[in-house]
Amino acid sequence: MAAITAPAPTTARPPSYYVRQRLLGNKPAMFGLGFIALCTLIAVLGYWVLPDNSPSANNSIVQLQKEPPGFQATILRLPAPKDSVSADNVFLTWWQGRAPRYAEQPIGSYRIVGDSLITEPYRNHSALADKSRRYSLAQITGHTGSAAELRQEVEETHIVHRTYWLGTDKAGRDELSRLLLGTRISLGIGLVAVLISLALGMLIGAVAGYVGGWVDSLLLGLMTVVWSIPGIMLVIAISLALDSKGVWTSFVAVGLTMWVDVARVVRGQMLSLRTTTFVEAGRVLGLPQSRLIARHLLPNMTGPLIVIATSNFAAAILLEAGLSFLGLGVQPPAPSWGLMVNEGFQLLGTQAGLWLTLLPGLAISLLVLSFNLLGNGLRDAYDPKTPLSHA
């Protein structure tokens, strides 16, 4: 008689394991997460990875304005005024860039004759450069030496062949550098807005849902009033109240307009959870209300809060872009994507207007799409009815 073998025991896994498996199997969500991670890496590295690491990527060469993507130029680097050159500092460069060490000007061609460099004008763009110019090698390098040494230094250090992969804007600035640096502002304003909205929304929603009564009615009325005011109007009002239109003002203003979504979700979840058995047990044990809310109720809302945070992240990026486009958000020369779209929009009808509008607009669309895809994936991942076989 064959022996009867018992089925192998199944390993108990926490709910977070299944959430993670559903999310990892969702290809659109993983694409969104990958693009967000790439933008985050670029934002964190900042000026360290930019072709133009001047403050706000604002190194302007007027002769190179509105050049198409992929064009190349030969740049002559001349000594910059000593009072405008700061000492190299790795962390200061990462935070706010480095002042240009050279005064740059484009040239058409050059030749070295004896101890002099003779340059031809760059496409005759400048009326001041309509003829050849002569520079002494000592003037360019800033020191004296043998002609051979000076010539080698000039050709290796002071003559640069540069490729502008995404062209230049109307001020002659590198479009790629400004586009990459714009990730800092977009992700920064999204992060600050989400943190402010989560902190304020969780506080107001938790108090309204748990306490109930007239407190709930009062806070619900406040949510309804704020909900009825357009977000852009609220940001404008907050900016006027703070009497500023700087970067940090835009960050705070956008965050203060997005807490209602969080508060309504937290209030609804709190109303359904406050009558559960574990909450009643906590009351019987004499636990303070603040501990019940912070340690036992809010952690049970992690899933919905994460989903709404990703949605608010995308909404904050769009709101900041719209405000900057209108001139009410981040101010020049900061490279905000919305401001860059506005600069390109002013040139529509010209050859440069198309890509100067399309490139930052595409960056905004891809980043917002990525957050929406990730939010949809998180919503499905936290839904226990979503089968793992489809993930």
Score class of each variant (00 low, 15 high):
41 L>T: 15
42 I>G: 08
42 I>P: 11
42 I>V: 14
43 A>R: 06
43 A>H: 08
44 V>C: 09
44 V>I: 14
44 V>T: 13
45 L>T: 15
45 L>C: 06
45 L>M: 08
45 L>N: 01
45 L>D: 03
45 L>H: 08
46 G>F: 10
46 G>P: 08
47 Y>F: 12
47 Y>H: 14
47 Y>N: 08
47 Y>T: 12
48 W>D: 11
48 W>S: 10
48 W>R: 09
48 W>Q: 10
49 V>I: 15
49 V>N: 04
49 V>T: 15
49 V>L: 12
50 L>W: 06
50 L>D: 14
50 L>M: 11
51 P>A: 02
51 P>W: 01
52 D>L: 05
54 S>M: 12
54 S>H: 06
54 S>K: 00
54 S>Y: 09
55 P>I: 04
55 P>C: 05
55 P>A: 08
55 P>S: 08
55 P>T: 10
56 S>E: 13
56 S>G: 07
56 S>M: 06
57 A>N: 04
57 A>M: 03
58 N>Q: 04
59 N>C: 00
59 N>Q: 05
60 S>Y: 00
60 S>Q: 15
60 S>H: 02
60 S>A: 15
60 S>E: 15
60 S>M: 11
60 S>R: 10
61 I>M: 14
61 I>D: 05
63 Q>S: 13
63 Q>C: 03
64 L>I: 03
64 L>D: 00
66 K>H: 06
66 K>L: 13
66 K>C: 14
66 K>Q: 11
67 E>H: 07
67 E>V: 00
67 E>M: 13
67 E>F: 03
68 P>C: 03
68 P>V: 09
68 P>N: 04
68 P>L: 03
69 P>N: 07
69 P>T: 08
69 P>W: 04
70 G>R: 01
70 G>Y: 00
70 G>N: 11
70 G>L: 07
71 F>S: 02
71 F>C: 02
71 F>G: 00
72 Q>W: 03
72 Q>F: 02
72 Q>A: 10
72 Q>C: 02
72 Q>D: 11
73 A>C: 01
74 T>C: 03
74 T>E: 09
75 I>T: 09
75 I>E: 01
76 L>G: 01
76 L>Y: 09
77 R>H: 14
77 R>A: 15
77 R>L: 15
77 R>W: 07
78 L>S: 14
78 L>D: 12
78 L>N: 10
78 L>C: 10
79 P>C: 02
79 P>I: 03
80 A>Q: 13
80 A>I: 02
80 A>K: 09
81 P>D: 13
81 P>R: 05
81 P>G: 02
81 P>N: 00
81 P>E: 05
82 K>F: 01
82 K>G: 09
83 D>Y: 13
83 D>A: 14
83 D>F: 11
84 S>P: 01
84 S>A: 08
85 V>P: 01
85 V>W: 05
85 V>D: 02
85 V>N: 00
85 V>L: 02
86 S>I: 13
86 S>T: 13
86 S>C: 04
86 S>Q: 15
87 A>C: 05
87 A>D: 14
87 A>N: 12
88 D>P: 12
88 D>E: 12
89 N>G: 15
90 V>Q: 04
90 V>G: 14
91 F>L: 15
91 F>T: 07
92 L>C: 01
93 T>N: 11
94 W>E: 04
94 W>K: 07
